[in-house]
């Protein structure tokens, strides 16, 4: 039986009380937040922050970013990862750009380990917003992992001039990762 995939639609401007109610102060229990770290989480604490820019260079104040990542040893908290049962780190976060005065998304997390022995440490990202009918996928790599990045098969599949759009810039434990939907610096988006 071949069914057709249900079409995607925009998350719209009013996702906040359904998907990020705690962040925006709505009276509904929050299931997913932007702090992925628990007291017993192993690994180096980092912060990731950035803005989403539209084609006019303006910051998008009603985007929602989701991140999915492995723990410090490169394990995903999912049954498809054979090592997953050892990990207490959930690895999923969500944040809207509507509450920070600078319209940043901000995640408190840990630096992931390298994945399956071949891929450099990275975080998977989904971008949604009003005006985006189908969500886009990208990845966050880390500027202080130059050697691993050079060997990463996904980075190497991207034309060299565009690779910097995928690499977050370290300033101590804070990594800056801006997302550009259009223009000269348009972020690389993947057909996942």
């Amino acid at each position: 039986m071949a069914l057709k995939q249900t079409p995607s639609q925009t998350v719209g401007p009013y996702f906040a009380y359904g998907l990020t109610p705690g962040q925006y102060g709505y009276p509904f229990r929050e299931l997913v937040a932007n702090n992925l770290v628990a007291a017993d989480t192993e690994g180096a604490r980092i912060r990731i922050e950035g803005c989403v820019y539209d084609g006019a260079g303006d910051k998008v104040p009603d985007a929602m970013i989701e991140i999915w990542q492995a723990d410090a040893q490169g394990r995903y908290a999912h049954p498809a990862d054979p090592r997953s049962s050892n990990s207490s780190f959930k690895g999923f976060g969500r944040f809207g750009t509507g509450t920070d005065p600078d319209n940043r998304f901000i995640f408190e997390t840990i630096k992931p380990g390298s994945i399956d022995g071949a891929q450099a440490p990275h975080i998977s990202v989904i971008v949604m917003m009003r005006g985006l009918l189908t969500h886009t996928f990208t990845r966050i790599y880390f500027s202080d992992e130059a050697e691993a990045n050079q060997a990463d098969p996904v980075l190497n599949s991207v034309e060299e001039s565009r690779r910097p759009t995928l690499i977050a810039t370290a300033d101590g434990a804070v990594y800056r990762f801006d997302i550009h939907m259009q223009g000269d610096q348009e972020t690389v988006f993947f057909d996942v």
């Binding site: 539209d54 084609g55 985006l132």
Partner: peptide, 24 residues
């Protein structure tokens, strides 16, 4: 969508654990 939709071709990615796992 005119200023918010991405414009360049999507880059194909070989699926790995990063794509085949997800939040539970």
């Amino acid at each position: 969508t005119v200023l918010r939709g991405q414009t360049r071709p999507l880059v194909a990615i070989k699926p790995s654990l990063s794509e085949l796992t997800g939040p539970v």
